[in-house]
Amino acid sequence: MSMPLIEAVDVSRRFSRKLDYAEKIANLFGAGLEEKTVHAVDEVNLAVYPGEVVGLVGESGCGKSTLGRVMAGIMPASGGEVRWQGKPLISLQGAEKRNMRLSAQMIFQDPMSTLNPRKRVIDLIGEAPKVHGIAKGRQMRDYVASLAERVGLDASYLDRYPHQFSGGQRQRIGIARALAVKPKLLVCDESVAALDVSIQAQILNLFMDLKREFGLTYLFISHDLGVVKHICDRVVVMYLGRVVESATPDELFGNPKHPYTQALIRELPTVADRRRTFTPIKGEIPSPLHPPTGCHFHPRCPKAFDRCRIERPVLKENAAGHVSACHRNDLAANETTNATAEPAI
């Protein structure tokens, strides 16, 4: 395969709270307090190839947004490295660094909190192209108008403020702003989660049209399995900072291997199933401050056995392009004497 557009190699992101003065003083007297560290992202490998739409799914606190931010380059990794077209992000300098920054844009969940309420649409969309010299002076209005029309906003609205738009239209402003600097990669963080079904469908169609037209690559972060299944070429499932499974949507939804993925798919109420009973998996999502030992999912897993409590499972290939991190893979492999290949996602 060609070179990935962007690649996370053993990327970790930790957040720690420094000890305050009282705690430092308490430590002088031997209280033995330690910094609390959250492993938001824990040694994750993820490659996104040009033109691909990769879905990143998981529940709140699984680290999917943090991983998205690290890959978009707006948050540094605490361990491992992110490579842009093969080059580590931290090695990029000057123009190269600026180009990478422009090439990876993010679209967030709540457009109202990412659009400056005191700026008009023309300035919101036009600010970055102006700074980076993509459009100048008199061309600016035409440039912004063409972008606005491309995302389905009426060009006569350019002098309005964000509060004068509905949620769906605001999201279109956010998309136009991201497109204004001619990106290659869009990281969409729950970009359609706050929208009503009928509007959500409009925005998803827009994303797909833009992909074809501008040859975009997407990292699509969402908790909505239905959306991800529909638009992604590959789906990556995260749980508590780690990737637990990755496959094409057909494979993942048709033949999920990890018990967590299986539960997610089973418990998703859909109109088509009209399932009348619920068989929820027990337990809460554990705190990332104190993740369980071994496999993070083992306290909730109906199929857990002793090894799951001790040893961290690694990603192994179940079928071509389908990897999952579950010790039960080895049991299955022993039974069918299938050789497990090196993980590659």
Binding site: D196, S198, I199, A201, G226, H230, I231, T270
Partner: peptide, 24 residues
């Protein structure tokens, strides 16, 4: 019926969704 066909599950994977045009 518009609501029901606007959900991603209503169309084959990868095909354009069928949103309700306009907004409320």
């Amino acid at each position: 019926s518009g609501l029901l066909s606007a959900v991603p599950a209503a169309v084959p994977r990868g095909e354009p969704l069928r949103p309700i045009p306009g907004f409320a």
